[in-house]
């Protein structure tokens, strides 16, 4: 699929700025992708092409990295990424019912994004906060000790952000 020149141009400036912050050395690729993704929680094709150009790394390599790690996404995602832990300690303290409550409250299934592009529901492996299981992480913030009743409260906290 050909990609529009405007998209490439608009990604170029931002990507160059970010790359110059760290340097074009390949070791900084992960950090650079984190920063490039920060604006809309996803890495567009145009952005990946510009990263490859700016760092002089084959696009296939950049794409390979962007799809290897679960914190990156090459598909559009919502403003808030709700990552629900499905590892065992959360599983046995009620993660399933929390998952269903999020799905119901937002009217989407796990892996989907709401129509208004506000929320995305994703599974995640253990977040390292099992002391307060079941837990979810929404963007940088973690919420613990969740029950189905608390889901609405958590969503409202995002809305007011």
């Amino acid at each position: 699929m050909a990609i529009a020149k405007e998209q490439l141009d608009s990604a170029e400036k931002r990507v160059l700025q970010i790359v110059s912050r760290y340097g074009a050395n390949e070791e900084h690729l992960l950090q650079i992708l984190h920063d490039v993704q920060a604006d809309d929680n996803s890495l567009s094709e145009a952005e990946l092409i510009q990263v490859a150009r700016a760092m002089d790394i084959p696009l296939s390599r950049v794409y390979g990295v962007a799809t290897f790690y679960s914190m990156y996404s090459v598909r559009p995602r919502g403003k808030f990424i709700i990552r629900i832990c499905e590892s065992a300690p959360c599983h046995i303290t009620g993660a399933q019912s929390v998952i269903r409550a999020f799905e119901q409250a937002l009217g989407i299934k796990m892996g989907e994004t709401t129509k208004d592009r506000k929320f995305t529901l994703e599974y995640t492996s253990c977040l390292g906060v099992c002391g307060v299981a079941p837990a979810v992480m929404i963007n940088d913030r973690v919420y613990g000790n969740l029950t189905p009743d608390k889901v609405q409260e958590v969503l409202s906290a995002c809305e007011n952000d």
Binding site: S87, P89, C130, G131
Partner: peptide, 8 residues
């Protein structure tokens, strides 16, 4: 990196 489920 601490990714082992149940470890923090």
């Amino acid at each position: 990196d601490e990714g082992e489920p149940g470890t923090f």
